[in-house]
Computed example of a mutant assay.
Amino acid sequence: MTTPADMSHAMLVAILMHHGGSLDLPAGAFTPDALGGMDGAFHAVGMEPLPGTGMIRISVQPRPAGDDGGITRL
Rank of each mutant, 00 (worst) to 15 (best):
L16H: 01
M11S: 08
R57T: 03
F30Y: 08
M1C: 09
M47G: 13
S8L: 11
T53K: 01
R63L: 13
G70S: 04
M47C: 15
P4R: 14
P4C: 12
P64C: 01
P4I: 03
G40L: 06
A14E: 13
T72L: 07
M7G: 00
G28M: 02
Q61D: 09
M11T: 09
G46H: 07
M1G: 13
D67I: 00
I56Y: 11
A65H: 08
D6N: 15
T3W: 13
H9L: 13
P32M: 01
T72K: 10
P62F: 05
V45A: 07
V45W: 04
T2G: 05
A27C: 02
A27P: 13
L50M: 15
T72M: 04
T2A: 13
D33N: 10
G69T: 00
M38Q: 12
G36C: 08
T3V: 12
M1N: 08
A10P: 00
A29P: 03
M38T: 14
G36E: 07
L16F: 02
P62S: 07
A65M: 07
T3L: 07
A27I: 06
G40V: 10
A10E: 07
P32Q: 06
T3Q: 12
L23N: 04
S59I: 03
L16Q: 01
M7V: 15
M1K: 12
M55T: 14
D67Y: 05
L74C: 04
M55W: 07
A34P: 04
M55K: 06
T3I: 12
G52C: 12
H19P: 02
S8V: 01
T53P: 10
M17Y: 02
G21S: 04
A14K: 09
P62K: 05
T72F: 11
G28D: 10
P32F: 01
P4L: 05
L74Y: 09
A10R: 14
D6E: 14
F30N: 05
H43G: 03
G70M: 03
S8I: 03
A27E: 12
L35T: 14
A44L: 11
A27S: 13
P64Q: 10
H43F: 15
D67R: 07
L16W: 01
S22C: 06
V13A: 11
D39T: 12
V60Y: 03
D68G: 07
G66Q: 10
M17G: 05
R73I: 00
M55R: 07
Q61A: 02
L23M: 10
L50H: 02
R57A: 15
G54P: 01
I71D: 02
T53S: 15
S22P: 01
G46L: 00
G28S: 13
V60T: 15
A65F: 08
T3M: 09
P62D: 14
M38Y: 00
D39C: 09
R57H: 10
L23Q: 04
T3N: 10
